[in-house]
Design a protein around this nucleic acid. Sequence first.
DNA 1: ATTACTGCAAAGCATTTGCAACGAA
DNA 2: TTCGTTGCAAATGCTTTGCAGTAAT
Lengths: 146, 146
Amino acid sequence: MPATDQFFQKLKQHGYKITPQRQAILQCLLDHPGHHSAEEIHQIIKTSYPHISLDTVYRNLHTMVSLGLVLALNFADGRNRYEIATEDHHHHLICLSCGQSEQIDFCPLRELAEEISREKNFTISRHNFEIYGYCRNCQPARKERG
Amino acid sequence: MPATDQFFQKLKQHGYKITPQRQAILQCLLDHPGHHSAEEIHQIIKTSYPHISLDTVYRNLHTMVSLGLVLALNFADGRNRYEIATEDHHHHLICLSCGQSEQIDFCPLRELAEEISREKNFTISRHNFEIYGYCRNCQPARKERG
DNA sequence: ATTACTGCAAAGCATTTGCAACGAA
DNA sequence: TTCGTTGCAAATGCTTTGCAGTAAT
C-alpha cells in the first residue's frame, strides 16, 4: 500500500475528502523530507500539478496540522515551515547565511517534560527548539580582537 | 546611575543618538520584565509619551536587537516578542488558552552547545525554545476514551 | 444530490521602507 | 551645521477569508 494511505485514512475519518490537491501536498511532503515553506511546497507541486493554488496549499497544510499529520515550525524569518509528521522527532540547526538546515536528534523535552508537568502543573501540547548560526560551509569571518 | 546608562553607552559607541523615543523604549522594557510585542510596547509608551509612532518602536527594537541590547523571540502566533537582554537566560512556557507565559531557567544549549560546535562544526549565534500548552489555570477538559 | 473543496480576488495583519521635516550632537 | 532620526503614509510579505463555481462522496 502507498505510504500516503494512513494519512488519507485519517482525513476520511474526520470527514475530509481526498482531492488531487491533498494527494499532491502529501506526496510532496513525503518525497521531500525536511521542512519547507508553503511557497516552496506550492512551487514543487506546480511542476507536476500546475493548477494548484497557493491558497489551497495553505488551507490544506492547516488542516493537516490540525489533524497531526503535519508539523508546523515557526522559524525566525517570518514564514512557517511544514514537514510530514513521522515517528522520529527532531530539531534543527539553521544556517543564517545559506539557509540550509540540519537535523539534530536531541530534544530538550525528553528530560524536561515530566518535571514541567509535575512542578508547574502545565499540560504540554507542543514546543519548538531551533538553533541559528553558521554551518561548516559558511563560517563567519573571525572577529578582530578589541 | 540609572539602569539605562549601560544601554545608552552601547548606542553611543555605535554612532546612534539618544533620542527620547529610544529612552522611552528602553525604560519600558526595563519597567516591564518579560517579553512583549511591538504593539504592546507601543501602547505602554504612549501613555507617558503619546507622540511616539509604531514605526519608530519597530525600528529601534531592531537596532537594539542588532546591538544585543534586546532579545527577539519568535512565538507561534505570528508576532515577535521583545525583552531586555539581561544576564539571566531563560525560556518560556506559553499558555495556549490565556496567553500568559512563565519562565523556565532550563536551557537545552547548556548541555548541547559544545557538542554541536565540535561535531557539526556549526557556530551558534542564537536559538529559541518555547513550550506551548495549558497552564495550571487553564487545564483542558480531559479527553474521552476512544 | 449533498456537502466539502477549489481558485480567484480581496482582505488582514505584522513589519518594513521612502521621504521630507526634525532634532541630537 | 551635520547627519542620524522621526512620523507619516504607502508598500511589502506571509497568510487568511468570502464567494461562486466545481468535484468528491
